[in-house]
Amino acid sequence: MAVSIELVKELRERTGAGIKDCKDILEQTEGNINKAIDILRERGIEAAAKKSTREAKEGLIGVYVHYGSRIVGMVELNCETDFVGRTEEFGSLANALAQHVVALNPRYISEDEVTDADVTESGLTRENFVKESVLLAQPFVKDASRTIEEKLKEAIAKLGENIIVRRFVRYEVGA
């Protein structure tokens, strides 16, 4: 099936995938853009898994100061090269993650950091505690259909480098 250039362009704008990949996947899905997005997302997750062992020592710190300057969030987001670290997309991701930290106030980056004592003390089930307290497991504040971990994997696939959250901090006046 031949697909229109407008459909290819729309898929490219929505996913950041290459033009040839967009065209091929749209032909494969007979022009179904939602199926094409799902396939590209799966491929991105696979690509992210391959890159996860690569060292990420470059990057930047994303900062978000909430209205009224009473709450601020900072996130150190690392990548492999300063080239990617200087891109607008990487900077936007870092700042969006800082905004997420302000909004949802996670306590840990990954589930590996959670202790059984923390879960017991909270009175929640482990799964609920993780969803509430672990940054990577939380639904992204700007798109609740994806977790922070999924958002990072999409960025890895799009930018072609390993990306990790090294650390974060949230300050609130009076807290």
Rank of each mutant, 00 (worst) to 15 (best):
A2N: 07
I5E: 14
L11K: 02
R12T: 07
R14Y: 04
G18I: 05
K20I: 03
C22G: 07
I25T: 10
T29D: 09
G31K: 09
I33Q: 02
N34M: 15
N34G: 13
N34Y: 15
I39Q: 09
I45N: 15
K51M: 09
K51Y: 05
R54D: 11
E55M: 08
A56C: 11
G59M: 06
I61F: 11
H66G: 13
V72P: 11
V72L: 10
M74L: 12
E76A: 12
C79A: 00
T81P: 05
D82V: 00
R86S: 02
R86K: 13
F90I: 00
G91E: 13
S92N: 13
V102W: 00
V102I: 02
L104M: 14
P106V: 01
P106H: 02
P106M: 04
R107L: 09
R107V: 08
I109L: 08
S110N: 08
E111P: 11
T115Y: 10
A117C: 14
D118N: 14
V119M: 07
E121G: 10
L124R: 12
L124W: 08
N128E: 09
F129N: 00
K131M: 04
L135E: 07
L135T: 03
L135R: 06
L136T: 06
P139M: 01
P139S: 04
D143A: 04
A144G: 08
S145E: 05
T147D: 03
E150G: 06
K151M: 15
L152Y: 00
E154A: 10
E161P: 02
I164P: 00
R167K: 13
R167I: 04
V169E: 15
